[in-house]
Amino acid sequence: MHFESFEAFLQMGKHGAYVWSAYGISFVLVGLNVALAVRAQRQAKEDVKRFARREMADANKS
């Protein structure tokens, strides 16, 4: 561990605001991006299944 205390780690000398905002923004951007990708994937999977069900229903009707 480079820092002597947790407070020193948070303060980063006098650069705490810079370092932590850089990491915070990056974390949020990456998290949002992955969340959107997960949602899109779930949606696509649902669509495939719904499409299959509807075709099955149409086939049974005729």
Partner: peptide, 21 residues
């Protein structure tokens, strides 16, 4: 990079942004 790497002798701890940048 954030907690264990040494500080930079010129830039201090601000250089730790490098590990994401």
């Amino acid at each position: 990079g954030l907690a264990f790497a040494p500080a930079d002798y010129q830039q201090g701890n601000s250089y730790r942004i490098i590990f994401i940048h």
